[in-house]
Each structure stands twice: as C-alpha cells, then as structure tokens.
C-alpha cells in the first residue's frame, strides 16, 4: 500500500501493465516528454522510450482510429484524448468502428483499447473544456465506460480497462488528479462492473461517481451530524453497471438520490432512475431524486461556473427533501 495521488495512481496502473505486457503503449497529443496536458503520463516516456509513449499530431480521428486498427491486430493501445470535450473530433472512430467491429464481424474480432480522457468543470475552462459527457458513451453498445472516483480505483480500474478485450472509455476527473489515498501496490485490479459502497448507511442511498462521489461523501458527513445516515454507492463503471448493488442498497434504505455532474437531461441518472423504478419500485418509500448540472453549456465566469456545478449544499438539500 502506498499513499499516492489519483494522477499517480492512473500512471501507476499504466506502468504496471506496460511492464507486464509489451503490447501496451500510449499515443496521444503531448504525452511523451511533455507528460500530457495534465501531467498524467509524466515520466513514462523516460521509462518506456519513444516506441511506447508517442506524441501524435493534433489529429483526434487518427489517434482513436489507429488504436482500433492496432487493437484489432492484438496490441493494447491507450489513446489519450486531451479533454473529453474533444471526443466529438473522433466520435466515428469510437462509435461506428471500435464499438461495432466485433459485432459486425460476427464475433471474429476484438478491439482491446482504452481511450483515456479527462472530464469535468471547476477550472474556468469554459464550455469546450469542462464537460462531463459519459452518457454519450454509455449509449453505445460495445463500449465500456469507467469513471474512477478515488486514487485506488483509478489504478485498479486502469489495469482492468487495459486488460479488458473491449474498447473502454476511461474518464478521469480533472478535479480529482491531486486527490490522495492509499493505493495497493503491484497488479491491483478493480473488476469492471463491480460497485463499491464507499460509506455504509441505512437511511438513504446516494449513487455518485467521479468528482461527485467526493462531494457526496462530504455531504454525507454533514448529514450524519444532523442524524441522517447516508449510504454512498460508487458504481465506478457505468457500463457494465452493477445494478444489483444499487437495488440491494435501495432495498435497505428505501430512498435514492443520484448525483452527477453531467447535465440533467439524458444524463446517466435517468438510466439509474429507470432501472430502480422498473426493478426496485417496491423498495422505494419516496420519489427518486437527481442532483445534476442544469441544462446549459458550462459558463466561464467563476461565479456562474460555481452555480453550474452540483454542490454539497444541493446534495444535502435533495437528501433532506426526502425526509
């Protein structure tokens, strides 16, 4: 066990797999000597050399598209897209190529690739560099979507994502890069599709991931002081989704609040709500609540951006409304 940041944990996960499997390599904009726009790949170029940590031109379509071809030949590329917002520049390569190749080919291909990309607001980076877009990817059958919310999960999910034989969107949060925690050493794997109860409780279930997990945990502490005992469940991966864990928790608490940083309309909270309404309606003793960003682009001005981002206060308010 080593104490490290979320960013170091992502890097450690990549490092472990690059040492173990020579077919794992990193390609993306400024990932080599520069170490990536946020520094996540720092040092890997020196450690693994120019054949395995490669700068690409500013060419998102071929960054993701070449990963599809290389993965189809059995390599395990980690393609970095500098901001999740830029996925629009290479969406065909993900949703029509990577995601569908196996199925279209009748099962006779596999595409073991990872697209690593940061999401999230809070840096004053405005409308094109701050979004959370996970529902774009969960809506594509054939792609898995991973969103770690702690340092340990960042590592364990990275290793699992690289080892997975499918295209995986690994979405890290810019606000979490400096978050530290105890991270298991060596080949630590967090299986995709397994939720984690980050805080046990009996009165209400909060389902939250990525940055919102941390906000929900903080909110839960404050609510505990007021006598509300919150269970905080982190699905960790949205596809595959551990719906059994969600249903089990709701069966215990009878109440569900879903917190996400995506805008509310067509956000993944809608999907979780529908699952619980369809399969766990009898467990509920109050309406399901969603705390999400409003249906707007992300504003630049700090005062507006802070209003946009779902806050601890809003989470607390939503929980209290159920009692």
């Amino acid at each position: 066990m080593t104490q490290m940041s979320y960013m170091e944990a992502i890097r450690d996960g990549m490092r472990v797999e690059m040492k173990r499997d020579s077919g794992v390599y990193i390609a993306g904009e400024d990932v080599a000597q520069f170490g990536g726009c946020f520094g996540v790949t720092a040092g890997l170029y020196d450690e693994f050399g120019p054949d395995r940590v490669m700068n690409t031109p500013i060419s998102e379509a071929v960054i993701v598209g070449h990963a599809v071809g290389a993965a189809a030949l059995g390599l395990r590329p980690i393609a970095e897209i500098m901001f999740v917002d830029f996925m629009g520049c290479c969406m065909d390569e993900l949703h029509n190529q990577a995601a569908k190749m196996k199925y279209m080919f009748g099962g006779k291909a596999k595409v073991p690739m990872v697209v690593r990309t940061p999401c999230g607001a809070g840096l004053g980076a405005a409308a094109q560099h701050s979004q959370c877009l996970e529902s774009w990817f969960t809506h594509i059958a054939g792609v898995k979507t991973v969103m770690p919310g702690t340092a340990a999960d960042a590592k364990g999910l990275m290793i699992a994502a690289i080892r997975d034989d499918n295209p995986v969107m690994y979405i890290e949060h810019k606000q979490l890069l400096g978050l530290t925690g105890d991270v298991p050493d060596g080949e630590y794997v967090v299986p995709l599709g397994k939720a984690d109860i980050k805080r046990e409780g009996s009165d209400v279930t909060i389902v939250a991931w990525s940055w919102m997990l941390q906000k929900s945990l903080a909110a839960a502490e404050k609510l505990a002081a007021e006598g509300i005992n919150v269970e905080v469940l982190d699905p960790r991966t949205l596809v595959p989704l551990d719906k059994d864990a969600i249903l089990k928790s709701v069966s215990k608490t009878g109440k569900l609040v879903i917190v996400h940083e995506e805008i509310k309309t067509s956000g993944f909270g809608g999907e979780i709500s529908a699952i619980v309404a369809e399969e766990g309606f009898d467990y509920l003793d109050a309406p399901i609540k969603r705390v999400a960003a409003p249906d707007t682009p992300i504003p630049f001005s700090p005062i507006l951006e802070q209003t946009f981002i779902p806050s601890e206060e809003k989470i607390i308010e939503a929980v209290k409304a159920l009692f």
Partner: peptide
C-alpha cells in the same frame, strides 16, 4: 471481414478504413 486472412473489414463509413489501416501498419511495425 476475415481477420485471420488480414481482412480488417469492408466498412460502411466512407473513409473509415484509413485510420484503421494506419493502426494496423503501426502494429506491424511495433
């Protein structure tokens, strides 16, 4: 497609084969 024969698929998206072939070539070189 016949991956065993090195046929990485026909493609329904015009121009989608070029990045994939580029990646396949990358794997050959790698």
């Amino acid at each position: 497609a016949d991956v065993d024969l090195g046929i990485l698929g026909a493609n329904g998206i015009v121009g989608a084969g070029m990045p994939i072939a580029t990646g396949a070539a990358f794997a050959c070189k790698y």
